[in-house]
Each structure stands twice: as C-alpha cells, then as structure tokens.
C-alpha cells in the first residue's frame, strides 16, 4: 500500500470551513488539504494538527511541478517534507503538471507533454520526491485545455508506466479525464479502463464549468452526471477506493458541501440509493 487512507469517501478541506469542522467534528471519512497552505506555522498548522488527531489526512500538493525542466525547487520540497513529518499524513499526492520555465513561475497546473523523454524526466523527479519523503507518493492526472502534437502515449498510459517504474501510486481524477474528453476529444472511459485497479490508491471527483466553449476544471460546481457515471463504472471495475470530493471555488456553507458529500458516500455504499448519475 502506498497510503493508509480508509476505504471511505473523503472531503477537501478549505480554510473557510475549518472553524465549523473543528467545532462540529462532522462525519467525514478523511480530509485532504493543499500542502502549500500549511508550509508556515502558527494557527493554520495548529488547526491542521487538531484535525489530524481525529481524522486521517491527505496532503495534496499543487506547486511542486513534477514536470518542470531542470531541478525541482529544493526549498519547496524541504517544506513539504517538514510538513509531512509534522502531520504524518495517510497520503501525499502531487499533480502530473509543470509550473516553471526560464526563471518564471506559472501559478497553474500546466499539462505535461507526453512526447519523447517524458517518462524518464518525470520518473526521475518522482524518485527524487519519494527519496526525500522516504515514502511513495501518488500522482494525479490533470485537466487540459490544449494538447501537444507528436504525443507517444495517453495520460493513463503515462501514469501506469510511471507507477511501474517508480513505485508511486495513482490518484485518478475522474473529472479531469472527463474535462479532457470535452476539450480534447479523448475517451475518458477508455482512459480509465487502461488503469489497473491495484495501482489506484485514491480517486478525485469535482465539478467543472463552461467558459467560452471550454470546460474549465474550476472545482466550483456540483459533480456532473457524466462524471458520476464514470466513477460508478470505475469503482465496479476496481472495487472500493477512497474517493475525494473536491470543492475550491464558489465555496458555499459547509452544511451544503457536507450534504453533497453524504450523497456521494450513499451512492458508493448503496448503489440503489443513487442520487448522482446512473451508478448501478
């Protein structure tokens, strides 16, 4: 096992909800936070440690940029390592993305070109992170708005190859595969079918929004019916997996988000009570 996450659903935890969560200790299987939000000290980390005492926790990085050219940022990696040592998370994940070129950072998750050399490049960075953290990480597929010519493999194929080469686990984001279906014309169902269940350690689902004819992965809407269906099919193939509901923008009350979470949990536990998509 690359993680010790329970086979339950989890929920993304964002700072506006922290006071409610600390006060009410809601029924949630586990929480996931963005690692970079806890690179400092003070109240933020103290509250995270309180959460950690009562729940399993997953650290999800958005800034390491595994696909960047050149070296990874040693300070960023050291901060991640220090945080991991403090909170002892059940899982640590990063995106298959890059964010830096020629001295300049791009504060977004840019897609990795799956061209000649991609496997070697990413495998070396993943190994570096795993060596530093002394544990396997999970790598996650991203949503993309543009594609590269001369690609030699699909994103699912890249993930599987990297898992085999580095021993990392996979975090499969079903919404990202679906967004790429809408934007780039790939076949999400086929991509999911390329991933063997034993490599999947975690699943993400979230909502996307349309902007000027492009599906944008905002994590700012309810999960779509199509994504629920893809999730249902994937779980049928892979068996139970920890599934995380992510919500980052247009964050409403915690009660609303928790209700959506409970519906997801119901759907996964009792398919006949399905309130999301056409899971069977």
């Amino acid at each position: 096992m690359k993680t010790t996450l329970p086979q339950l659903s989890g929920l993304g935890l964002r700072s506006p909800h922290l006071p409610t969560v600390l006060e009410t200790r809601p029924d949630v299987g586990w929480w996931e936070v963005h690692s970079e939000n806890y690179f400092g000290g003070g109240q933020a980390v103290a509250q995270l440690l309180q959460i950690r005492r009562d729940y399993p926790l997953s650290l999800h990085g958005v800034g390491l940029g595994l696909g960047r050219l050149g070296e990874l940022d040693a300070r960023h990696l050291a901060q991640l390592k220090q945080l991991a040592e403090r909170v002892e998370p059940s899982a640590i994940s990063e995106h298959l993305a890059w964010n830096h070129f020629a001295g300049r950072y791009f504060n977004d998750l840019l897609p990795v070109p799956r061209v000649q050399g991609v496997v070697e490049h990413l495998a070396s960075h993943i190994m570096q992170v795993q060596d530093a953290l002394r544990r396997p990480i999970l790598i996650e597929n991203v949503s993309a708005y543009v594609g590269f010519a001369e690609e030699i493999m699909s994103e699912a194929e890249l993930m599987v190859e990297l898992a085999r080469r580095t021993g990392c686990g996979l975090l499969v984001d079903v919404n990202n595969f679906y967004v790429n279906t809408l934007n780039l014309g790939l076949d999400a169902e086929a991509e999911l079918a390329r991933i063997p269940g034993e490599l999947v350690e975690e699943i993400h689902i979230a909502g996307f929004e349309w902007f000027e004819g492009t599906a944008v992965d905002t994590h700012g809407a309810a999960v779509s019916t199509e994504v629920c269906q893809l999730l249902g099919n994937a779980l049928q193939r892979w068996g139970h997996k920890p599934v995380l509901l992510e919500r980052d923008t247009q964050l409403g009350s915690f009660a609303d988000l928790h209700q959506e979470y409970m519906q997801l949990e119901q759907m996964i536990k009792k398919p006949q009570a399905n309130t999301c998509g056409v899971y069977k």
Partner: peptide
C-alpha cells in the same frame, strides 16, 4: 508551436492571473 487547440491558451493565462 506543436500545440492543438492553442487558442485556448488564454484559459491558462487567465488562471495564472486570477490565482495571483
């Protein structure tokens, strides 16, 4: 550029800008 759908690059520019 070797990019498909390169006209959508504006979404990345917008994301970087809005995040910052």
């Amino acid at each position: 550029s070797g990019l498909h759908f390169a006209h959508r690059m504006r979404h990345y520019r917008a994301n970087c800008r809005l995040n910052r």
